[in-house]
Structure formats: structure tokens, C-alpha cells
Lab assay of single mutants.
Amino acid sequence: MTVLPKDIPGDSLKVTVGTANGKPGDTVTVPVTFADVAKMKNVGTCNFYLGYDASLLEVVSVDAGPIVKNAAVNFSSSASNGTISFLFLDNTITDELITADGVFANIKFKLKSVTAKTTTPVTFKDGGAFGDGTMSKIASVTKTNGSVTIDP
């Protein structure tokens, strides 16, 4: 049996954390987006972790974005102690894959008090994996961190 590389060099799934701005007490939304989904033969499963400074940001909610089908079954998240974990699994293993680019999740943060303008990162942590529509590992994932700026 011969195994051929399935990824064209330079191609990767792009996962990007967005940015937001606000004043202390505001609730802002930071999107997590996927790009080049079709090039990577869709997404059938993924789990990953984001870190944030809990002294500056309070997670209000984490909701599935419009590219997630049947989110009540296929999407899960949790947030505590400065870490947000995400889990997606197409429970049907074929019919509810992520097949389009767009917003995977929206994180709502309540901004805490600061004395001066502060930009705090929302960054990928170690761990996690992504699988394509056949549940094979997506070897190349380009992750881009985001941030939230609090301006009193």
C-alpha cells in the first residue's frame, strides 16, 4: 500500500482569532474563523484551546458560528481559569461536516476595569488537533492569535 501526501505544500487550514475593542463593562464579541476549508477536504472534527487573561476578560458565552451545522449536538465549549476549550465533531461522520469558510465560534467577553488603554492577547495554547471530512488528521493548520483592547 502506498500512502501519498494529501496536502499540497503551502496549503493549510487557517484558524484565526479576531479582535475587538471596548470600554470597561462593555461586552464584545471576538470571532474565531476558519478559511481554506474546502482545500483541506472539509473539517469533520477539531479540538483546540485559547488562552486569555482572566483578570482583564470575563467569558460571558461561547457560541457556535454559522458554519457549524447542528451545533447543539456537534459543538461544545467550556471556559475557566483563562482557557477556553473548543470541540467539534460531526456526529453523523459525513452529513454535518464544516464545508465552508466563515465564523466557527463567537466568544463574548465582558471587559474588566483598567486604568490605561490595554491590549490583551487571545492566543492559541498547545494541544488539540483538526481532522478532515474523512477524519484524517489535517497536518497543516495555520493559527493566528487575536486580541481585545480595553480603553477606559
Rank of each mutant, 00 (worst) to 15 (best):
S76V: 04
C46H: 08
T120H: 06
G65P: 08
G102M: 15
C46N: 08
G128R: 03
A100S: 09
M135D: 00
D53L: 09
S85Q: 00
D101K: 06
L111E: 01
D101Y: 07
A38H: 11
A20R: 11
A79K: 15
N145F: 07
L4Y: 14
T19Y: 13
K41F: 14
K112E: 04
V17H: 11
N21W: 12
L4F: 13
I67Q: 12
I138K: 01
P31S: 11
E58Y: 08
V141G: 04
N81E: 15
T33Q: 09
G18M: 12
E58S: 10
T120A: 10
L87A: 00
V73F: 06
K39N: 13
V43T: 10
T94P: 04
D11N: 14
S80W: 15
A35K: 13
N70W: 04
V28G: 09
Y52N: 09
G51R: 13
D90N: 03
N145D: 05
D11S: 13
V30D: 09
V73Y: 05
F88T: 00
K14D: 15
V43H: 05
M1K: 14
K117H: 03
P152D: 04
K137W: 00
I150Q: 15
F75A: 00
I67S: 11
V73K: 05
T92A: 03
K14H: 14
T19F: 10
T45Y: 00
T45M: 04
N106K: 07
D126I: 15
G102T: 03
I98T: 15
L89P: 02
N81F: 15
T92S: 01
A129E: 06
A139G: 07
D90L: 00
A38F: 07
L13I: 09
V103Q: 05
T2K: 07
A100H: 09
G127P: 02
V60C: 13
N145G: 10
D53S: 11
T19A: 13
V122R: 00
V28D: 07
V3F: 13
V32G: 08
V17Y: 07
G128K: 00
G22T: 09
A105F: 14
G82S: 15
T19I: 09
D63A: 12
A72I: 12
L13N: 08
V68H: 10
F104R: 00
F109E: 00
I107F: 05
F75P: 01
T99I: 08
V68I: 11
P9K: 14
L56S: 12
K23N: 11
D101A: 06
V3S: 10
D63N: 14
A72W: 11
K23H: 09
V60L: 08
T118H: 06
F48W: 07
T134G: 02
G146K: 06
D132P: 03
D151M: 15
G65D: 10
D151H: 15
T92N: 02
V114T: 07
I8E: 13
L87C: 00
D53T: 11
T29A: 13
K23R: 10
D53G: 10
G128W: 06
T33L: 12
P5G: 08
D7H: 13
L111Q: 06
F130S: 02
V148T: 06
N21R: 12
T45C: 07
E96W: 02
V37T: 10
T94Y: 15
G65Q: 09
T149V: 15
K117Y: 03
T92W: 03
V3R: 11
A54T: 12
T115S: 07
T83L: 04
T149G: 15
T94M: 01
L111W: 09
V103M: 03
K137D: 00
G127H: 04
G131F: 00
D11Q: 11
V15H: 06
V37P: 12
T83F: 15
S136I: 04
G51M: 12
F86P: 01
L56E: 14
N70E: 08
D151A: 15
F86M: 02
T29E: 12
V103C: 06
D95G: 03
L57V: 10
G133M: 04
V148G: 09
V17L: 13
T94F: 15
D151Q: 14
K125R: 09
I93P: 02
D126R: 15
A35V: 12
I138D: 00
